[in-house]
């Protein structure tokens, strides 16, 4: 791999662009696609370009056969995102664990003293109201949303936006009773049974979690289950 290619790859990713790195395993030649456009390497055969686009869409690195022998297509997509509502104790465990699992994490909490850099080093913090912040973050199919405040004033607006998005996981902390009341309120906002069934509440797999770290594990495990399609 050429140093210039590796540098170009990381620059593009730092700007949030999708990157596809191709290696011709028979010859050692390499090529780079940034945001779907080839920026390094000899012009690619049509079939290889198509394969690269598919790999990018499905976020799956793969090796394909071509006229020039096997080509390894390595996908560098923007990371999965996790939006946490509530800069609370459990968030302090969930945020580093999710970062380790490869998520770009944003924590939303408008309350004074909660979303601070001392409590949450190296993470994106937003102190806007959850509805406003969520609209701006625009959750997509590679985003998980978890509400942790137990406060309907904060959790409900976030869940309202999440339910209108393609977020692959929506979790809400709180007891079964709290959750039942939450569903009634969200129903009143116009969400039908199918939409409401998307919310994992109480959030997290039932593994008997007690401590904040254990609860964070149960939530991250459930997010993984939703992402990898083993539900």
């Amino acid at each position: 791999m050429k140093v210039a290619l590796a540098e170009r790859l990381l620059e593009a990713r730092a700007r949030g662009q999708t990157v596809c790195l191709l290696r011709f395993l028979a010859t050692g030649e390499e090529a780079l696609l940034v945001a779907g456009e080839q920026v390094i390497g000899a012009p690619l055969p049509e079939a290889v370009l198509d394969a690269a686009q598919r790999a990018q869409r499905y976020d799956r690195s793969t090796t394909v056969e071509s006229e020039a022998g096997p080509v390894f297509i390595q996908v560098f997509n923007p990371p999965l995102r996790l939006v946490v509502v509530g800069a609370v104790h459990i968030a302090q465990a969930l945020v580093p664990m999710a970062s380790l699992a490869g998520y770009a994490v944003t924590v939303i909490d408008p309350r004074r003293g909660f979303a601070t850099a001392e409590r949450f080093p190296n993470v994106d913090l937003v102190d806007a109201w959850p509805d406003e912040a969520m609209e701006s973050l625009a959750p997509d199919a590679r985003t998980a949303v978890v509400t942790l405040t137990h406060d309907p004033k904060l959790d409900d607006p976030a869940l309202d936006v999440a339910l209108r998005s393609e977020a692959f996981y929506i979790g809400a902390l709180g007891s079964k009773r709290t959750h039942a009341r939450r569903l009634e309120r969200l129903q009143a906002l116009g969400h039908g049974p199918e939409a409401l069934a998307r919310i994992h509440g109480p959030a997290g797999l039932d593994i008997g979690a007690v401590t904040p770290a254990e609860i964070a594990i149960s939530i991250l495990a459930q997010m993984t289950q939703a992402l990898r399609g083993r539900e």
Binding site: R13, Q74, S99, A104, V105, A133
Partner: peptide, 20 residues
Amino acid sequence: MGRAVASGESGMSEEERLLR
């Protein structure tokens, strides 16, 4: 959106970190 209080570096993939 309201004020972004802080921004971090989370979310860089393992492979990107290794290349860096």
